[in-house]
Write a protein that binds this DNA or RNA. Structure first.
Lengths: 368, 368
DNA sequence: CCGTACCATTGAAACGCTTCGATACTTCTC
DNA sequence: GAGAAGTATCGAAGCGTTTCAATGGTACGG
């Protein structure tokens, strides 16, 4: 392939892309034969195959995605749906998942069309354009989503993979966090450090992930023989942002709960909580130990760094895309629920660290 | 529009999308008339217009993007090209720019196809697939890019907008950072604080932005009557990541430079520098004041928070997309260089702050 | 040596839309 | 009152592929 597309041209004339017709003519074959070679389907003799390939190279031919799409009823695109509130607030959690899907999409020669939808299904207006226009071959949905939208997509007959969400009663593939294990690790870690009054702060309990974390928190308390204390759990925050973590902790204190440790539904809330606690003069972890969940970027930047449950976000995206691409290519949707493992990451918000030489920490992989 | 696409169906049968033909038949008009209504072009009587629109609504018709693409030679997509090294390392600087373009693309009913390319033009293999397949109507390029790739795209006749990059000698629209002003603000700020030995650390001087920042640093020293001291500037780091900031500062010290303040080419390097300085027992800002550039997220999380030059990253993306969409729609490429303003953000890495009540800081807008 | 099966190639329809030229009817304009 | 200009609609070609039925050739088994 030369520098200029097709053959060299003098700047002005925008070059015409060669079509399959040009290849056929040049190779002295029919359109269909050329198509067969390109799609590696059907019978083609070795000789004509190589002849076609040679001409293809000579002409710098590449099939038009759009034409191919029309003829084959495929778009080569995957839709990625994210709910509004996840999109422009809070920690870059779903960003990471998205990144994972991006990488994997590239491996399979798909492009991703990204969109957001409101939380409540606003009928017509909230249906992603790429669905209306038939511009995707499958859909990945990250986070909480309206069941009606999911039904709509099923109605179209597109394969779906959910990430960090389940729809009870629906038979769908999901890639999920092992929330039970994570919560268990967190609480157990605190218990092992000697804590007996371990609080929980959470919000948005509609979200299965959050609900699970809370439930597993309670169960782990039971398992460890620690008492459940209602005053130590604040679960009615509407959201899981930092502010809500802060206010949840204030509520907890106001209410007379005296926890020595807090397990937060996610890092954002943990950080909010941590900041309020310090503001109130508490020393972390001496007066209050804190564990988060997710291991987002800022967990390492906060002071003291946050002990948390690591979630492999990119991997979740990768897995989801793999499942989806498989479904798209084979046109068979097998329902699989995949749980990605979690890890306890111990930092200074629960265990006093020796003043280890502060390394020059890099940043994790990101879109840049 | 009902919940199910088209008309209600019993789960199994994947519904057939209505086509323009169905609309035409149902409305008792020709295809072309329906098309005219939908595209709001040509003459259509008010009566038939509304008749068509009614039928469209009844049937839940939406034109197929792919078919429309083939007929009109447009794809409805914008390509976003990012260089490899920007993609998966360092601070989320270009991520922000990308987010800006995403939002704006949505406003204009475009989707973005994202890809990365290697630094050196590896001939054929490094040409983004969406270009080969004719699957985009225009291209945004963020950061440093091979001139040959740009020429290739020009050859295809696609409009281009560069972001945070210029190609000397090429007539292209760019959205640029006001690096000169930023560097000036930074150095001036330090000088005003009484610093006279102000160092510079940088890397990847090929990048026009970095080069400009360095140049403006030198010029501002002159303007302020401060001496240029070779030992105070390290510019030969290959890259601008944290590690390089750290090593640049070590080099500077090893070389006997004794700056009281450092202006770093970007926040990543500033942070690396800051961490090494603290490690060496220096107090920030007393023994060493540091100013970065870009105002990335972690600038606020680092201890002490980093004084820096804020760059409006989302806005750069938005602007670039606006320019590009305009070029695509009007099919006229007018060359405009846009400089987005910068701001000095003073934090504790240069000026000791009163121990202000640590607010519960939210995170800035992000893909989640 | 004929029927079958496999291999290789082809022509034509189809995918769902845009667009251009043609037609025909109105309404101006002088 | 005739030609020009504007308005409304339509038929058909075309966009660049895929796909399927059809055709013909070759080899093979009985």
């Amino acid at each position: 392939m030369t520098l200029m597309p097709n053959t060299r041209r003098s700047g002005k004339t925008p070059h015409r892309r060669p079509t399959i017709k040009d290849v056929a003519r040049q190779a002295g074959l029919s359109l269909s034969t050329v198509s067969l070679v390109i799609n590696q389907s059907g019978y083609v003799s070795e000789e004509t195959r190589s002849r076609v390939l040679r001409v293809v190279k000579e002409l710098g031919y590449h099939p038009s995605r759009v034409a191919r799409g029309l003829a084959s009823k495929t778009s080569g695109n995957i839709g990625f749906i994210l709910s509004d509130d996840h999109f422009s607030s809070a920690e870059p959690f779903y960003t990471r998942i998205f990144l994972g899907t991006e990488f994997e999409a590239r491996n399979h020669n798909f492009y991703i069309l990204l969109t957001t939808v409101g939380n409540q299904f606003r009928e017509d207006s909230s249906i992603p354009r790429f669905l209306l226009e038939g511009n995707v071959d499958g859909v990945i949905i990250a986070g909480k989503i309206s069941a009606r939208l999911v039904e709509y997509i099923e109605g179209i007959g597109l394969p779906i993979v959910l990430v960090d969400y389940e729809l009870p009663g629906k038979r769908l593939s999901s890639v999920l966090i092992d929330n039970r294990k994570g919560a268990h690790l967190a609480v157990e870690h605190l218990a092992r450090l000697g804590h007996r009054r371990i609080g929980f702060i959470g919000g948005d309990m509609q979200h299965p992930s959050i609900a699970e974390r809370y439930k597993a928190y309670l169960e782990t308390l039971d398992d460890l023989g620690l008492p459940r204390d209602e005053r130590l759990a604040v679960t009615d925050e509407p959201d899981t942002r930092r502010e809500n973590g802060a206010s949840a902790f204030r509520v907890l204190r106001a209410r007379g709960g005296r926890p020595t440790a807090i397990f937060a539904a996610n890092d954002a809330m943990a950080i909010g909580c941590l900041q309020v606690a310090r503001q109130q003069g508490m020393r972390i972890p001496d007066d209050l130990a804190i564990v988060g969940f997710d291991d987002v970027e800022s967990a390492t930047h906060v002071d003291p760094p946050l002990t948390t449950i690591r979630v492999f976000k990119e991997e979740m995206g990768t897995l989801a895309m793999q499942r989806l691409v498989h479904a798209v290519k084979t046109k068979t949707q097998t329902i699989v629920n995949t749980y990605v493992p979690v890890e306890l990451i111990v930092r200074a918000s629960t265990v006093k660290q020796q003043p280890a030489s502060p390394e020059v920490a890099g940043t994790a992989e990101g879109l840049d």
